[in-house]
Design a protein around this nucleic acid. Structure first.
Lengths: 210, 210
DNA sequence: ACTTTTCGATAATATATATTTTCGATAATA
DNA sequence: TATTATCGAAAATATATATTATCGAAAAGT
């Protein structure tokens, strides 16, 4: 169970006692989100949520069975929705993709940078990030590349993982490791280089042997 | 103080009692290194060192004043020596640089991937990694680029931070985030793309505004 | 009014870890 | 042999955190 519910009965029947304050749920979740955004799950603790909200520990445990359940729901509510990109050309698709990824990475900075690669972070947590963030965006980029291939903008469909390295790698490094912003000029530069890399990657010369 | 020494007197004068077993120092440091390589400082604990070496906590604290001092020395002894690269052409310099960086990143996997970007990791620790690993290699790449510029292989000297994003970003992503290896084919591909990126980056169109 | 459930405050319990200390055994010197 | 410093084992202490439980006040329904 991830979230504790007051009532399993129909919504119209109001439960007996004092009703829960919905604002409290939101405050707890908002604090969780901002902690995760800033420092990832390493910065999270129930005490930190208490300090940021003024809520008591009992109030938190009445709603979530454990700290990690709260973190998990925080991740789900922090990860931005995936978008659908199909603008007609590889260059503009890729530009939109870079813009979307930059915004997403920045909005979940601590989470992505700190948690995704650590063994000591609960496997379940990394799975959640991969399932809700990474995987959908991989599918998005793959679809963009396939359409470009169909249009003849790419000679062949390059090995996907490698594309991801060259499209997301520099962005990840710029935004999350160096902590630089993503100006219009930087975005244009990233686009040109990504396009050049994709041309060099098609047809695929390399298959992965890890 | 980072390391506790038995004697401040000349080496020929042997101290009174039972001498320290040098192998014990090495075993502690080796365990520390392998923990840092695997999981970064997040995976480190005195208890883990005890478990891996059979040494007692007292023995560790007799040599290092605190756990973090031991970690710090572990970092210093884990980071590989910087090399000097000057082979006469941008392409072969860059190829050697990529090879060197790939080896270095892999040999300090957990450390670089997990620790460098986390706020909750002691600032001192990140400073140590930057000072001993990142900064010397940045200087190395900058020197390579300057010589290429002097030879006329680059039209201008591009903004350095941006070069670093496009040269190291994909490598970092491939090796540390995806966990893939660095085959000869992947290295050749990385070289071609890095060269293309550098040409697109010169002259610098973008200055950094973080 | 009476009951039920939430609320914040606070204490109690448990676990993980760092750090310190004590102990008896060991390996050196004097 | 007497002294000194090291060794591993183990216990003691301290801190941070998660989790549970208790309390009285508050907000609903009956």
């Amino acid at each position: 169970m991830t979230r504790q519910s007051t009532a399993a009965r129909p919504a119209q029947e109001r439960p007996r006692g004092r009703p829960r304050d919905g604002a409290v749920d939101e405050a707890i979740l908002a604090a969780t989100r901002s902690i995760l955004e800033e420092s990832g799950s390493g910065g999270f603790s129930i005490g930190e949520v208490v300090a940021r909200t003024g809520v008591s520990t009992a109030t938190i445990y009445r709603r979530w069975p454990s700290a990690s359940d709260l973190v998990m729901e925080g991740i789900r509510s922090l990860v931005p929705e995936a978008v659908d990109i199909d603008s007609g050309s590889l260059a503009s698709d890729l530009d939109l993709f870079l813009g979307h990824m930059a915004g997403s990475l920045l909005s979940m900075k601590g989470l992505y940078a700190a948690d995704l690669q650590r063994r000591d972070v609960a496997l379940e947590m990394r799975r959640e990030i991969v399932a809700t963030f990474v995987a959908p965006r991989e599918r998005l980029l793959m679809a963009i590349l396939e359409r470009a291939r169909a249009r003849g903008e790419l000679a062949a469909l390059p090995a996907f993982e490698t594309c991801w390295d060259y499209v997301i790698g520099p962005l990840h490094h710029r935004l999350l490791i160096r902590g630089a912003g993503f100006s219009a000029a930087a975005r244009e530069q990233a686009l040109q280089i990504a396009l050049a890399a994709l041309q060099l990657l098609a047809p695929p010369q390399v298959t992965d042997e890890p």
